[in-house]
Every structure is written in structure tokens, then in C-alpha cells.
Design a protein around this nucleic acid. Structure first.
Length: 571
DNA sequence: GGGCGGTACTG
DNA sequence: CAGTACC
DNA sequence: GCCC
């Protein structure tokens, strides 16, 4: 009690303004969306009631003064994990803002019952933080041993681990390789879909609950599984043969034309068609051929492909997480300068927890500025990019947005260019700014670690109301997104995109809104997956029992979906 | 024989 | 529009 | 590649 009062007094003393404000907008509240029994529906009801009581509900936990956390959550580390920060970072945040209170949902209930917002009583304070603060002076081990047995099953994201068969993993890795080869060196139009299918099957083999084999019974069993057709099963047998290899892997690795395809397609902006052209019409085999031809004025690429040629080696490189973080911080500072209060999140493989990342994906949105609420200012992202350019952070643009004025001249590219001669840049057309692009920027930024190297950076700006859908999309991975979209389509006849959830019949009507990713999973009746779980085979799992009362058609579509889940690959 | 995600940017 | 890209 |  003493602590609480002291904190409150201190915060009021430190910030009279806040104390005054409390009469108007007394409570800035975040409902931490985790924990069994603290469902989206219940949170929604509580939030609505709290709004009625003039509380300010924020989705950003870092802005909140009152954080409502389910009783089911028993440790601060769990909270930190859900927020994708370290426990230390979270603790520091709470320590430095000692007017923040972690409270139980029952505090909300009591306020609603009293029909007014009240300062929480002692037993409304959540123990995860207050307990911990006291314990720090004691023994950390005690602390650890206390939080270990905390309900792990209160979060429904951890599935029982299925036992894995080494032989299956071996076969799966072969299919993974096959998938990658078809993707990176496609000669035929169908290779794209073969890659898709191989990858899907790789995930399924890895997670089979029996061991693959060549005997008739096992093969029969495999054939009965969705996705395991004739050709796939033959390849499984090849894997299990004496040689243990799939012929096609060798064929691909030793195929000159396919290797040329890979080399050409590694140029950003060159796809299958462009690569075929460079190979058959221009006779290029490697990046050196392309550069030589450019120097000799024998080859005209468009401006973006020229960037791809210039940054060829840089773009192959993968960064570690800290470099992603420092680039994001650079973006954050620039964006904050122009639009105070703007939110900056790192998405993509970084958010999925990967050790290293091929590029930096930044999601921007503004929680309070009304001009960002349902749409975005046309020139906002362009202005942020110009700010970055002005600071010398960007080497080359790949998109040209409304509001951009800097870095649009080929002279700018000459300065940054390392592998393409001046003449080639001068041959490219200067991009007229008659375009409508305003939301998605792609470019190459200078590495803050190795200033001569350039890193791919993608920045997307979304209206605040689309933030949950945007977050879901931008976290990925691609296969997970596709599986969710197929599910939304087949199961509900909805169209899921990074902007929202729409009715198929007109394609425009928004059928559901969401303020968190979890809400979207709830709408779609699938089990929530943490970002790091979104590239495993069982990433998408329908919530059990949701077929009750459904008609036959829907049951069928549910079966259909089994074809499309399990997108995954084996690392 | 058609479908296999939905969207944004360039030229 | 096709091609390429994003996850 | 597989599925409808």
C-alpha cells in the first residue's frame, strides 16, 4: 500500500499536468491481449465500457499507464516474451515510468460496477511486477523457480511437441532443396508451382507421425495423404534408395542454363522472363557479363534493374539482428522528426525471430493523428524518405512516391554507384512524378555498420485502423500469409489482405475490424500463432469445435483446406 | 484443363 | 497491361 | 507438382 501511494504521489508531483488531465482523460489503459479467459470478446466488452467511462484505450502497451493483464499470466517474462522484448527491457520501462500500473481485470470489473474509474485497490495490482520488484533484493533463483511452474498452458499457442523421425527430416530436407532449386532456377513456367508443392510436402514429411519407408503399406499410406501424389512418392523412394539422393537435385545443380537463371534472377528486378531474355538474347551467364555489356553500351536495363546490378553483391548479404535494429532506429528518428508520435515497427523475418535477415522491413502507422486514422496523407512516406535521403542514409531508390523530391536524378545515383558506370545511369529515364504511389517504399540504404555496403529496406505506411492486418501481413512468412488467405476464402468466403478482411461478393465491404493480430485469428477461428511460429508446418490450426452446426458445404471446404495448410519448409 | 494470395509499383 | 516485387 |  505504501508503495502504491508513494508511486502515485510521486507521479502527481512529477507531473502536475497529468494530475490535472486526469479529470478529463484520467486513465490511459492497455488491455494485454493474452491469457486464457481474457478473450478478444471479453476485452472488447471491457474496452467499450471503459471508453464509456472516458478512459483512453491504447493498443500500444508502451503508452499505457494502466496495463490490464489476465490473472492467468503469472510472470513478467511471459509478458516480455509476448511483447518480443527482453524481460530486462520491460522491467526497465516499468521502473523508469513508475506511474505505470499492472492490474488485474477485476479492477476493470469493479470500475464498471461502480460506473466510474477508480484508483485500483491494493489487491487489484498484478503480482507479476510488484512481487518481482520486492524480490530483486533477495535471491534471483527463488524468483526463477517461482515463475517456472507458472501455467504454461494458459497460452494456447504451444502445441504438444510431436516426435520427429531423423529419417523423415532427412527426406524432408531433400524436398526442401528441391523446392529451392525450382524456385531459384526455374526454366519452365511450371517450376514455380513445383517449388510450391515440394515445399509444402517437405513440411508435411518432417511432421509425419510415422516413419517414411519404401514398403507397400507405408507407400499406400503416404499416397492417401493430401499432397502426396505419384511423383512425390517416387521421389521419397529415391531418397530412401541406396544412393539416398534425388536425381533431379543433381540435374538442377549441374544444369548450365538453370545456373544462368539463378545468376540473372539474383539481380533485383530481373525475374524469370527477364532472365530468359538476358540469357538467350544477350548471351549473359553471370553478373560480370551483364556489367560488361552495360559498360559497352550493349545492354539497356531499366532503372531499377540497374540498381539491382549495382547492388548485386550487397543484396545477397544477410544482416544480423542488431544491424536491422540500428537501421530501424535511423528510420524511426527521421519519421519522428516529421510526424511526432508515429509508430515504427520492425517486421518480416526479424519479427519472426530469425538470427539474420535479408532486408529490413519497417511498418509505420500513427495512433493519434487523425489524418492517419482511416487513410494516410499522400506525401507522408515520401517526405520521410526525403528526410532519410537528406541525411545521406539512402543509396538508391527503387520506388518513387508522392512527396519525394530528393534522389530522383540520375546524378544522385552516380554518386552512390559502385558497379555501374556513369553513362549507364545517364541512359536511364528520369522518372516523372506523375505517380500515385504513396504507401510502399523500397530502396537500398547504406549500412550503419559497414558504410560502403547497402541493405535492402522496405517501408510501408498504413492507416491506423489497418494496423493489425498490416502487422499480420508484414510479419509473414509468405506461405503462412497464403495459407491464412486461402482459409479465409474457403471457410468464410472472405478476402484477407494487409488492409483488412473483406466480403468476397463485392470485395470492398469490411466484414471485421481488428486492433490486434489476435483478433484476426479469432475472427478466422484459428489458433493464435506467435510470430516465431509462423513458418512451421502446422502454423495454421482451426479451433476445434467450430464446425458444430455448420452445413456440409462448409465441412467440405474445411477438408479442402487441409490441402493448403502445412506450408512450411525445413531449414 | 484451371486453380494454386492479395496487393503495389514500374515501364 | 505484363513483369516483378513484398510478406 | 497436386487437387478438383
Amino acid at each position: 500500500m505504501c508503495d502504491n501511494h508513494r508511486d502515485l504521489n510521486r507521479s502527481m508531483k512529477n507531473n502536475n499536468k497529468r494530475a490535472v488531465l486526469q479529470a478529463d482523460t484520467p486513465f490511459i489503459v492497455h488491455f494485454f491481449p493474452y491469457g486464457q479467459g481474457f478473450t478478444a470478446k471479453r476485452r472488447g466488452i471491457l474496452e467499450d465500457n471503459f471508453r464509456r467511462l472516458q478512459a483512453t484505450i491504447v493498443d500500444d502497451v508502451w503508452q499505457a499507464k494502466y496495463i490490464v493483464i489476465s490473472d492467468a499470466i503469472r510472470s513478467l517474462s511471459l509478458v516480455a516474451k509476448r511483447l518480443h522484448v527482453s524481460e530486462e527491457q520491460l522491467k526497465r520501462h516499468l521502473d523508469e515510468n513508475n506511474d505505470i500500473r499492472c492490474v488485474y481485470p477485476k479492477w476493470v470489473d469493479s470500475c464498471i460496477a461502480a460506473n466510474r474509474l477508480t484508483i485500483p485497490g491494493r489487491n487489484n495490482y498484478h503480482t507479476i511486477y510488484n512481487v518481482k520488484r520486492n524480490r530483486d533484493e533477495n535471491d534471483d533463483n527463488v524468483n526463477d523457480s517461482r515463475k517456472k511452474p507458472a501455467n504454461q498452458d494458459n497460452i494456447n499457442t504451444t502445441k504438444p511437441k510431436r516426435k520427429k523421425f531423423p529419417r523423415n527430416l532427412d527426406v524432408a530436407s531433400k524436398f526442401s532443396a528441391l523446392s529451392k532449386l525450382h524456385k531459384t532456377m526455374p526454366l519452365l513456367e511450371d517450376d514455380h508451382w513445383k517449388s510450391y508443392q515440394f515445399r509444402l510436402v517437405a513440411g508435411r514429411i518432417a511432421n509425419l507421425d510415422f516413419e517414411v519407408d519404401t514398403d507397400f503399406v507405408t507407400q499406400k499410406r503416404l499416397r492417401s495423404i493430401t499432397g502426396f501424389g505419384k511423383s512425390i512418392c517416387e521421389k521419397i523412394q529415391e531418397c530412401l534408395s541406396d544412393y539416398g539422393t534425388v536425381r533431379r537435385i543433381h540435374q538442377f545443380e549441374n544444369d548450365n542454363n538453370r545456373n544462368k537463371m539463378k545468376n540473372m534472377m539474383d539481380i533485383w528486378g530481373v525475374g524469370r522472363v527477364g532472365a530468359l531474355d538476358l540469357i538467350s538474347n544477350q548471351g549473359c551467364k553471370t553478373i560480370h557479363d551483364v556489367r560488361r555489356k552495360i559498360c559497352n553500351n550493349e545492354l539497356t536495363l531499366d532503372r531499377n534493374q540497374l540498381v539491382g546490378v549495382d547492388c548485386y553483391e550487397d543484396i545477397q548479404y544477410r544482416m544480423d539482428r542488431s544491424e536491422v535494429e540500428s537501421l530501424a532506429e535511423i528510420v524511426r528518428l527521421a519519421a519522428e522528426t516529421l510526424f511526432p508520435g508515429i509508430q515504427v515497427y520492425i517486421m518480416g523475418s526479424y519479427r519472426r525471430g530469425k538470427e539474420n535477415c535479408g532486408d529490413v522491413d519497417i511498418h509505420l502507422t500513427h495512433p493519434t493523428d487523425p489524418s492517419f486514422a482511416r487513410t494516410i496523407p499522400n506525401d507522408a512516406l515520401g517526405r520521410i524518405i526525403d528526410e532519410l535521403w537528406k541525411e545521406g542514409r539512402i543509396s538508391m531508390h527503387l520506388t518513387f512516391l508522392c512527396g519525394m523530391e530528393l534522389g530522383l536524378d540520375y546524378k544522385d545515383y552516380q554518386k552512390a554507384s559502385q558497379n555501374v558506370p556513369r553513362e549507364a545511369w545517364e541512359r536511364t529515364k528520369i522518372n516523372p512524378l506523375h505517380r500515385k504511389s504513396n504507401a510502399f517504399y523500397m530502396g537500398c540504404a547504406f549500412s550503419p555498420i559497414e558504410p560502403t555496403k547497402r541493405r535492402r529496406i522496405d517501408i510501408k505506411l498504413y492507416p491506423y485502423r489497418e494496423r493489425a492486418f498490416a502487422t499480420l501481413y508484414f510479419t509473414g512468412n509468405g506461405f503462412f500469409n497464403r495459407s491464412m488467405r486461402v482459409w479465409a476464402d474457403r471457410r468464410f468466403n472472405w478476402k484477407l489482405s494487409d488492409h483488412g478482411l473483406y466480403d468476397r461478393s463485392d470485395g470492398k465491404t469490411r466484414v471485421r475490424e481488428a486492433s490486434t493480430e489476435r483478433d484476426i485469428f479469432d475472427h478466422l477461428k484459428i489458433v493464435y500463432r506467435e510470430p516465431h511460429e509462423r513458418d512451421c508446418w502446422d502454423a495454421l490450426e482451426p479451433i476445434e469445435g467450430n464446425l458444430e452446426g455448420e452445413d456440409e458445404d462448409l465441412k467440405l471446404t474445411e477438408t479442402d483446406f487441409k490441402n493448403e495448410d502445412n506450408y512450411a519448409w525445413v531449414e
